[in-house]
Amino acid sequence: MNVCVTALGPMENSEVDPRFGRCAYFVFFNLHTRAVEAVKNPNVEASGGAGIQSAQLVASRAAIVVTGHLGPNAFKTLNAAGISMFSGATGTVKEAVAAYEAGKLARATAPDSASKSGIAS
């Protein structure tokens, strides 16, 4: 099972990117094999719909999302796809995965940031 962590870089020791739709990288972490695979986010500069596009990209590759914040459209799309969402992650990708595995992250049950809030931050 894959966990997707939004990150500023493509590595396990990259910092978590608090934005979901416009994060720099999606780092996919396989909980069984511990293998890491990163995908550069093509939606960073989308004029609109970044959260929806990113959610579709992630939904095809992971069952769990770990990020900082989720906007309304990303939340709606991931929720429809049945993806478990955890927000409030900080530190490195590795630390975020460890926090998830230790049950320290809160499950997101509603969006916690506004549309467009990930632009140019």
Binding site: A46, G49, I52, A55, Q56, A59, T77, A80
Partner: peptide, 9 residues
């Protein structure tokens, strides 16, 4: 404008 999303089930 990405106003539609198709979610595979």
């Amino acid at each position: 404008y990405h106003a539609l999303a198709v979610i595979p089930h």
